[in-house]
């Protein structure tokens, strides 16, 4: 039981990271019907930018007060990656808005390869090590070890998710986003600046992904140029599991995938864990073809 609870805690931590990254996939998909294959790379950039700032000498003073330091660090990294996200849209996706779907997918894959190799050229292909930030602080709750980093990851993720949910559901801007995801042309007629909304999506999604990348770096204390693909594909799986285009779906899918993965690794086989996740995804899709919370779309006649 204790081991099970421990796995559950680990799963929730991983799951909240996946959920944050999955939000980026699902938001872009919701508005552009495009799988942003380069999103995993933005997540990875979050880790690399974070490491760069952490090791920069100017930053060490701020880390004397860890909370403020971390806050500034998160904001900086998220802003930087958001800029890259908007640039990515401008360069790789915007010229292809009216092109066939396959074309945009290949462009996204090209962008992914480009970003991956750009990071590899700048930072090298080995693993880079993060400085130790609050890793040894933990509590034992009923025999379950809960580290501070796990709590931070979970809380930060939940805050972002609740914030995003409120933004999308309760504000006028959110209403505009929801309208634009339904129908671009009609939204324009209603006075919504769709291009601005798309830009906003490419700010929020990459910023959340960057926060996740930074947290993974802080927690595992090592990052690599290829990590964007491994995390990206899992987050994409999570987004699909929940029903892509659906924001609560991405959150639930992420948490679910994290738990499935840790339980699968713990109780079945660690080397098969990705295969287990994919197999469960496929079974979910056979049972519910548009994911857990996805709408059932009838074919137009």
């Amino acid at each position: 039981m204790q081991e099970f609870l421990q796995q559950l805690v680990n799963g929730l931590t991983m799951g909240s990271v996946y959920a944050l990254v999955a939000l980026g996939y699902t938001m872009v998909y919701g508005i552009l019907k495009l799988i942003n294959f380069a999103h995993g790379e933005l997540f990875m950039l979050g880790g690399f930018f974070g490491l760069t700032w952490l090791t920069a000498s100017a930053f060490s003073g701020l880390l004397k007060s860890p909370l403020l330091g971390l806050l500034v660090l998160f904001l900086l990294v998220m802003a930087m990656v958001a800029v890259i996200g908007v640039l990515l849209d401008r360069v790789a996706y915007k010229p292809l808005r009216r092109s066939p779907r396959l074309t945009a997918v290949v462009s996204a894959l090209g962008a992914s390869i480009f970003l991956q190799n750009a990071v590899m050229l700048v930072f090298g292909s080995g693993y880079l090590v993060f400085p130790d930030v609050a890793r040894d602080i933990y509590w034992m709750v009923g025999g379950v070890k809960i580290t501070l980093m796990r709590v931070i990851i979970f809380l930060v993720a939940v805050c972002f998710m609740v914030g995003l949910y409120l933004l999308v559901q309760k504000t006028q801007l959110g209403a505009a986003m929801r309208a634009a995801s339904l129908d671009h042309d009609t939204s324009r007629l209603m006075g919504i600046d769709v291009d601005k909304i798309i830009m906003l999506v490419f700010v929020i999604g990459p910023a959340l992904g960057a926060a996740a990348g930074l947290m993974v770096g802080l927690y595992y204390r090592q990052i690599n140029f290829a990590m964007g693909w491994t995390y990206g594909i899992r987050a994409f799986t999570a987004a699909i599991m929940g029903g892509i285009g659906n924001i609560p779906g991405a959150m639930i899918g992420g948490l679910l995938l994290g738990i499935i993965e840790t339980l699968g690794a713990g109780y079945i086989s660690a080397t098969w864990k990705d295969a287990i996740s994919f197999a469960i995804l496929i079974f979910i899709l056979i049972w519910r073809p548009t994911g857990l919370l996805g709408e059932r779309v009838a074919d137009k006649v």
Binding site: V91, P95, S107, A111
Partner: peptide, 10 residues
């Protein structure tokens, strides 16, 4: 290679 994939598609 990655950049070329994007450019070709554009």
């Amino acid at each position: 290679f990655g950049a070329a994939m994007m450019l070709m598609m554009i």
